[in-house]
Design a protein around this nucleic acid. Structure first.
Lengths: 189, 189, 189, 189
DNA sequence: TATGAATGAGTGTTCATTCAT
DNA sequence: GATGAATGAACACTCATTCAT
């Protein structure tokens, strides 16, 4: 691929993340093209379908989160790492995670995105396991409900104007509900 | 209104609830008409605007929930009532609550739906207060984060195929996070 | 026909004249029904087609004008009668004559309306002939161009907001153009 | 703009002039597309709104007439120029001038079309003035009634099947009515 | 006979996608 | 490889007309 093509691809993906994060699936491909300052035909040359465009944006997002999770795994305190990961996934994912629902229910979930999603999930699972081993998280908790809770808060706060402190309190509720009984989750500064 | 018209109206509302619950605002009025087995013109005779159709469906849903909440208020045990309400709102609301976000951010939230929504919220608030007085719910909890958590789980489980037990575990996490420390929420049968 | 039916018919015709006069053919049958305070089905029972409704309204208008022309024929001064007829047809017809174009170009011009139109035309022709015999109108003038001029001014002033004095001056121009050379048309008070 | 696009634009405008001239504002954009042999989406790409399409057609027509009027101004004989202008405006404008009323009463008359319309009116005014100075036209005549008469005949003859000689005689009547007393308007060959 | 309700065939408009340059 | 233009299929909505009550 030529260099200008690669640059275009990157600009388009960034624009897609912004547009679909803002308007959900209702966001138009034309608008993506406009923000990326390319012709719409260029968008379609890179991503032959609106769906593929969304998936590519998702993939990018998953990979960024995976990197972040990896960094947190290296953190000294598993309990701190755990809480930070949950918080970050909800907050940074807020605008973008809405995208998941746009492709998730299709039968043939795209190979690339599903792989990235699995990679992310396994790292999250690892942070979870460490939290459990450290006695900070209930042993019965599985990644599945954690994901559901994260996605829920991300979507809900993304689709309505939620005051930050309301979201913060909701996150605390979740963290408390996940934490080992007797150890309440300390609220961050 | 004639009887056949009332029947149509009811069928249309049910169809609208299903369609918009499934596809969000992207659901088409045509599809609603198809599922209700009426002409699209009939849909528009009953609800002159797509928005009004969505709002009417919302209103219906709010009122049903309000009735249910009222019934639960009359229940003997506040703690049981509280858990039942949360569970029911998430489960029955799953498909439908997604609709809230579709109209919630408009400036002129329609009188009917907003009133119904407020009525519901106040009853939920009452059930919450009773749960707190009975020592079953943390005193610091407010309706706002409860709503956010409910909406989150409802939307998230509605927009992806979630196994029932995953949803159940997530609900338990939330209920535990909301309950008085030391009193874990007993899982139902 | 029952009496209430006849009353309805009359109210519908009046409403039709108003509505189509205001909006032209774009006026909706529903609006006519609304102004006549009857159901739309009643409108269609009386006039099985929108076209037939328009034609009936036309016919009514033609007949009223014919009556008026007859009265003018009886007038003592042919020249005065002539000018009065032209003026009245343009002015009263302003709002309504637009209707003519709505049906005029169809092949099968409706029997009733065409008859009424012909009756009117023949009376206008008579007034014209008398004016010519009295030396007030050019002998070469025929009813055809007179009709075209009348319709033109009526339509043009009906479809745009025309100041009364502009219309009056235009009518004077026409009257002058029609009158015997050497005898300018005296402007009325 | 690419060349094929420019060609399409021109074909669309021509089609619009024909269609709206025939049916008035009731003419459908689909019909325009059909006559221009393009997809309806192409029509909307060029003119994002039916209104803008009508306006563009109007503007084109006004500009053509203005050019013609300018050419006539340069003509040696003001009386001849005057009569030729009136005749041409009525005849060529027949099908098209109907459009004026469709947009004229809107508050925000579109800048382009209104400017073009004003330019045309001022040139017509100039030809009128020259005719008056040459003693061919009554001094009391203003552009307003001239316009009303022109529009009237154009509309009336456009909306009904008028035999050419009837229209010609009507035009003569108008020209005579406008001309200086004692000087009848010579009929053209 | 009159009505409220239902309908089919449009209308203007948008958008994901393809084609010619 | 990138672009501007074109397109078909849909969408929300309207209206003349018909049907059941």
């Amino acid at each position: 691929m030529r260099q200008d093509a690669r640059e275009n691809r990157e600009r388009i993906l960034a624009a897609a993340e912004a547009v679909f994060g803002e308007y959900g699936a209702a966001g138009s491909t034309e608008e993506v093209a406009r923000r990326a300052a390319v012709s719409i035909a260029t968008v379609f040359r890179h991503f032959p379908t609106k769906e593929e465009l969304i998936e590519a944006a998702l993939l990018r997002h998953f990979e960024q989160l995976t990197d972040l999770a990896h960094a947190l795994v290296a953190d000294a305190d598993p309990a701190v790492a755990w809480r930070a990961l949950i918080r970050t996934m909800i907050e940074t994912g807020a605008t973008k995670l809405t995208l998941v629902s746009l492709v998730a229910d299709r039968d043939e979930f795209p190979a690339g995105a599903v792989a990235a999603s699995n990679r992310l999930k396994s790292v999250v699972g690892e942070v979870l396991r460490r939290g459990q081993e450290a006695g900070a998280v209930r042993p019965s908790v599985t990644v599945e409900e954690v994901y559901l809770l994260i996605r829920g808060l991300a979507q809900a706060s993304a689709t309505t104007r939620t005051p930050p402190d309301t979201l913060a309190r909701a996150v605390d509720v979740v963290l408390t509900g996940l934490s080992r009984p007797g150890r309440s989750a300390p609220t961050p500064a």
